[in-house]
Design a binder for these strands. Structure first.
Lengths: 232, 232
DNA sequence: AATTTAATATGTTTTTTAGCACATTTTTCT
DNA sequence: AGAAAAATGTGCTAAAAAACATATTAAATT
């Protein structure tokens, strides 16, 4: 983790939750928030560790995951720039209940818990925005529980690919997923072993649902993937 | 669903989130909240249906569940008196993202969404209490995702039994779970088929971890159950 | 650029879990 | 209370997924 002098747009231009802050609060938030940098695969925070900051991703990609049984990890969600994380633990004044690490080198705003909670207490509209964000995260988590427990391998992998597509979109070619993920991460998202992720992705390639070149995945038949995901 | 004239203690004596309300707000809340009754297995709200109320359980037990693939259901959580539910959808102004049905006949307070949201907007302390509740629910959901995906059948069943114990405690004998649940619900909690729930519970009985008499389950060896749950 | 290390691909075996059948018991309903 | 409907208990079979092995390829490191 490094700190560097680099200019990023102010908070309120990056995520609408900050738009609810008054001039004074914006100034306070900007003073307190600090840009920090992480290398690829570096740990940002870890499960159980007491929450000291809430974070907003500025550049790069981050995975939020939990360690399960026998070092198997489950990726809870993947973040893109301006997504906010680590805020739940701050609100509950608990340790983080998951770990965060950089998928690729990235820049992050971190805001001390005290500052964040101050803003929540002072500003009802801000509090409401945070609440709304949490309501979305909760809905997603409950949907994900059912996806991961009830769908079969093919359905789970298709689901993950569509999730990546929805979250990161395509490269300029309009086909290639704008997210390079090792197969192991794909497996950890989809609740399966790495070899099953590899095998199933190969199957999808044979069926011409996707085309694979290393970590570059082109989506050839989104409709069919949706169907596979839907039927489990 | 019926309505009856029956007296329940006022909201603020039943769940601490209501303690944050002012006198005036308490009066408003009490006016707007209404007691409704549901028969065993009656549906209280269903997944996708637009949220009109938030609810607080007064008497009885309620299951919150999602329908997955091929009518298999996943129980997201089980409620005991004074637990609050259906509030997430109100906050996000969305449809419910799960269904709720009565495990046994029960009484419920229901409060119109507009009233609930009014209180949230007006009263920062109340908003914060709701937020805190949601933070707990979110943490639970994420833990549950990992439990249900990574643990093996025995681990998942042990987990569920301990969850029931934590939530409902023992009967007066200090051994029998104060929650009668058909094996199918036990299966739907634990992400397994009904026959596997029956089979695995029988195994636990043979190993003298529990004693089973119909739906009455006595916990004989909590320590061992914890170990089985922990190791997956 | 070369070397080491890690990731990917694929086949095979073993374990785990679901699915089905059917007898028996318990609940529910009238 | 008695009949009908559900739920439970067990055995067996099939399917799904994990585990393991090993070759190949790509990525990271010096």
């Amino acid at each position: 983790m490094k700190r560097r002098d680099e200019e990023f747009a102010p908070l309120w231009e990056l995520n609408k939750i900050w738009e609810t802050l008054t001039e004074e609060e914006r100034k306070y938030a900007a003073e307190q928030a600090e840009v920090v940098y992480y290398e690829k695969n570096e740990l940002i925070h870890s499960d159980g560790e007491m929450s000291l900051y809430m974070w907003m991703l500025l550049r790069g990609k981050v995975r939020i995951f939990k360690e399960g049984i026998g070092q198997r990890q489950q990726i809870i969600r993947l973040l893109k720039p301006y997504d906010i994380f680590g805020y739940r633990a701050c609100i509950a004044d608990e340790g983080y209940n998951s770990s965060a690490s950089a998928v690729e080198s990235c820049a992050v705003y971190r805001m001390p818990k005290a500052c964040f909670m101050q803003l929540i207490r002072r500003n009802g509209a801000f509090c409401y925005q945070v609440m709304l964000m949490m309501a979305k995260d909760l809905a997603f988590s409950e949907i994900q529980t059912v996806n991961l427990t009830q769908k079969h391998i093919r359905g789970r992998l298709a689901e993950s690919l569509l999730l990546l597509l929805k979250n990161y979109g395509y490269e300029e070619d309009g086909q290639t997923l704008a997210m390079l993920l090792p197969r192991e991460d794909l497996a950890n998202m989809s609740n399966m072993t790495t070899s099953n992720a590899i095998r199933t992705l190969s199957q999808f390639a044979q069926e011409e649902l996707v085309a694979v070149e290393g970590r570059h995945i082109r989506i050839l038949n989104e409709k069919s993937l949706e169907k596979i995901s839907r039927l489990g």
